[in-house]
Design a protein around this nucleic acid. Structure first.
Length: 308
DNA sequence: ACCCGATAACTGGGTTTCTC
DNA sequence: GAGAAACCCAGTTATCGGGT
């Protein structure tokens, strides 16, 4: 398993995906056209820990509304990841940073809207016999018209990735793809399309001597390792409080390791806790995090002994 | 802890699309 | 038209979950 630090991610995002030079300045020779879209997708993977296929198959209508994310003073927005796109059909709730959600709506209002326009202009080329036309759609369900002309209501969390790629929003005037992530011609960005984006970005980084090879799944691993270290640190703080309050004991120690792992298991959508355990060994690789936690722990114990 | 099958992710190579 | 970026497909590899 491989993961990257936040500094390395920033380099990958800015140099590889956005086409900047390593010093952060603009690269006039950069020809990429989707730098912001690609950087946003990478940040989505890193900040939520979603699998590539999960993030790639989100529908625009599933996103919390633009108004909702502007009205809230919360930093994170709970988002129910649909069962049909999650591995093993297991829906789970992830936390979407509101800052990112606003940028997703910005992307939808500009780049995605342009792509849909291109799609409409090329409607003769894009006409697909297997398209699934939704005449109504909201965050929970769509209404499609079947071959027999009957309207059918379908829950969005039951729409498979294959059908999501076919799904279009249709009214009397236009047909527009329903997926969130689109290519510049309005086609659906597939998981293998994203894999290629990451490959090119890594190659560009290496051309500047930045020795990284980032894949979408690496960002999920990175999310897990960072989240676990932060959960353990937060838990260490709670254990300190327990000890100072005189309620030390096995329960506190169990919580120190057990709770963060269980929280991470839920966030990652692992069916088995053994899959989550692999990130403990990754923490060993990231010695600085472990050392910092141990130092905190040692300092606290030292304080107690001095007091005694 | 290990093994195995199912599924997801990655890669290489080819094609298409776009900009200059 | 050339070159770069974007996209797609098929084969391979890695991950994950469940059973023992």
């Amino acid at each position: 398993m491989r993961f990257i630090g936040l500094d390395q991610f920033a380099l990958f995002r800015d140099v590889g995906l956005r086409g900047c030079l390593p010093d952060g300045s603009e690269d006039p020779s950069w020809r990429g056209r989707h730098g912001e879209r690609n950087a946003l997708f990478a940040e989505l993977l890193l900040t939520t820990g979603m699998r590539l296929a999960e993030a790639a198959h989100l529908l625009f209508c599933e996103l919390p509304s633009s108004e909702a994310c502007h009205d809230t003073d919360q930093r994170l927005f709970p988002f129910r990841l649909p069962a049909a796109v999650a591995k093993g059909d297991k829906a789970r709730t992830i936390r979407l940073p509101v800052r990112l959600l606003r940028r997703l709506h910005d992307y939808a209002a500009l780049e995605r809207a342009n792509a849909i326009e291109r799609f409409a202009e090329r409607s003769a080329v894009n006409a697909k016999t297997d398209a699934l036309s939704a005449v109504e759609a909201d965050r929970n369900m769509i209404v499609i018209v079947g071959d027999d002309g009957q309207r059918k209501r379908i829950r969005l969390d039951l729409v498979t990735p294959h059908d999501r790629r076919r799904l279009c929003n249709a009214d009397d005037m236009n047909v527009a793809p329903a997926m969130l992530w689109l290519t510049e011609t309005g086609a659906v960005m597939t998981p293998w399309g994203w894999a290629a984006v990451f490959r090119r970005a890594s190659k560009r980084c290496r051309s500047f001597g930045i020795d990284i090879d980032v894949t979408p799944h690496m960002l999920r691993h990175s999310f897990a390792v960072h989240m676990l270290s932060m959960l353990i640190r937060a838990q260490l703080g709670m254990v300190m409080q327990d000890r100072s309050g005189g309620a030390a004991g096995d329960a506190a120690y169990r919580r120190m390791i057990g709770d963060p792992l269980q929280k991470l298991q839920r966030l990652m959508g692992h069916a088995s806790i053994t899959s989550t355990h692999i990130y403990l060994s990754s923490l060993d690789e990231s010695r600085a995090l472990v050392d910092a936690a141990i130092n905190d722990w040692a300092d606290a114990l030292g304080d107690e002994e001095t007091a005694a």
